[in-house]
Amino acid sequence: MDKVTRLASENRVVIFSKSSCCLCYAVKILFQELKANPEVHEIDQEPEGREMEKALMKLGCSAPVPAVFIGGNLVGSTNEVMSLHLSGQLAQLLKSPQPIS
């Protein structure tokens, strides 16, 4: 869990993903198109990937991937990210200089 929380707070936008997940791909492309420059961690390529997946679930992810963090705080998975994007709130979160609580 410590590794996940540390990685999630090291950059403004962090995505935990799996390289073979199509929903992860869609979320990564969305953030790239929004010019958010996300830090992406492919947990299926990490030696501690299974533990990271369990830690993400303990943090409250409805699905272990994609798990999106902005400002070190969990935003959620695909459904939450897409809902925020469609309502215009995702762009506002990305522009906000303050940490998200």
Rank of each mutant, 00 (worst) to 15 (best):
M1R: 13
M1T: 11
D2M: 11
D2E: 14
D2V: 12
K3D: 14
V4C: 03
T5R: 15
T5F: 08
T5H: 06
R6W: 06
R6T: 15
L7W: 09
L7P: 06
A8G: 09
S9C: 09
E10S: 15
E10Q: 14
N11Y: 13
R12I: 09
V13R: 05
V13L: 12
V14M: 10
V14Y: 06
I15A: 04
I15L: 06
F16K: 07
S17Q: 04
S17W: 01
S17I: 12
K18M: 07
K18D: 02
K18S: 01
S19L: 08
S20A: 14
C22M: 09
C22L: 07
L23P: 00
C24L: 02
C24S: 10
Y25I: 01
V27S: 03
V27C: 07
K28I: 15
K28N: 13
I29P: 00
I29A: 12
I29C: 07
F31M: 10
Q32H: 14
Q32E: 15
E33V: 13
L34M: 11
L34A: 12
L34S: 12
K35E: 14
K35Y: 09
K35N: 14
A36M: 04
A36W: 02
A36F: 03
A36D: 02
A36I: 11
N37T: 14
P38S: 12
P38K: 08
V40I: 15
V40R: 12
E42P: 03
E42W: 06
I43H: 02
Q45I: 03
Q45E: 13
Q45A: 08
E46P: 02
E46M: 15
E46T: 11
E46V: 12
P47H: 10
G49R: 10
R50E: 15
E51D: 14
E51H: 13
K54V: 07
L56I: 09
L56E: 07
M57V: 15
M57P: 05
M57R: 14
K58E: 15
K58G: 06
K58N: 15
P64L: 04
P64R: 09
V65S: 03
P66N: 06
A67C: 06
G71P: 04
G71T: 02
G71L: 02
G72P: 03
G72M: 05
N73Q: 13
N73T: 13
L74H: 08
L74V: 04
L74A: 07
L74E: 04
G76T: 04
S77Y: 01
T78V: 07
N79K: 09
N79Y: 03
E80F: 01
L84R: 03
L84C: 00
H85I: 02
H85G: 03
L86E: 11
L86Q: 10
L86D: 06
S87Y: 00
S87D: 01
G88P: 00
Q89T: 00
L90I: 04
A91E: 13
Q92V: 08
L93M: 13
L94H: 11
K95I: 05
K95G: 02
P97G: 03
P97Q: 05
P99H: 05
P99S: 11
P99I: 05
I100T: 07
S101N: 08
S101Y: 05
S101M: 02
